[in-house]
């Protein structure tokens, strides 16, 4: 799609705002609608838009295949790791109360980390699936 100059210009302007919006949804999910699942999908859609307009090879330069594979696993590990950290600090698995000095502070921290793990996994999953599908050439 290299000859669609309007698409190229508009998407170049839009992509930073999509990423910014995704981060807003990710970190504002405790106060308004949003959270890791939605933020991950929006974050992925920015990369997918880039891949659609500028080609998969260029998008792969921004986000190499190895990086997505590693991040994919890291999200799940972060989530499970928060649970294990709860055990080491004297609580139950996935008990956030013990993560910080106060119970609500611990809950804040736990939910923040868990949502971040979910967001990472969802975003990289969507990016991976799209790139794998689009990378087919028959």
């Amino acid at each position: 799609m290299n000859d669609h100059s309007i698409l190229r210009v508009v998407s170049k302007i839009m992509i930073p705002f999509i990423l910014l919006f995704a981060l807003y949804v990710q970190f504002h999910g405790e106060f308004g609608p949003g959270g890791g699942f939605q933020a991950g999908v929006i974050f992925a859609s920015a990369f997918i838009l880039y891949g659609l307009i500028f080609g998969i090879e260029n998008a792969r330069k921004v986000l190499p295949a190895n990086a997505t594979r590693i991040l994919l696993a890291l999200g799940v590990i972060l989530y499970a790791g928060v649970g294990v950290a709860g055990i080491f600090l004297g609580g139950n698995y996935l008990d956030y109360n013990v993560l910080a000095a106060t119970a609500t502070g611990g809950q804040h921290l736990g939910i923040f980390l868990v949502e971040f793990g979910v967001g990472t996994t969802v975003a990289t999953t969507m990016v991976t699936i799209f790139f794998v599908f689009a990378g087919q050439d028959f």
Partner: peptide, 20 residues
């Protein structure tokens, strides 16, 4: 349902991959 939607699209993608 929030989680089910995202899981749904992931499994749909798996089904589409099987179709390919």
């Amino acid at each position: 349902i929030l989680t089910a939607i995202v899981v749904g699209v992931a499994t749909t993608a798996l089904g589409l991959a099987l179709i390919v």
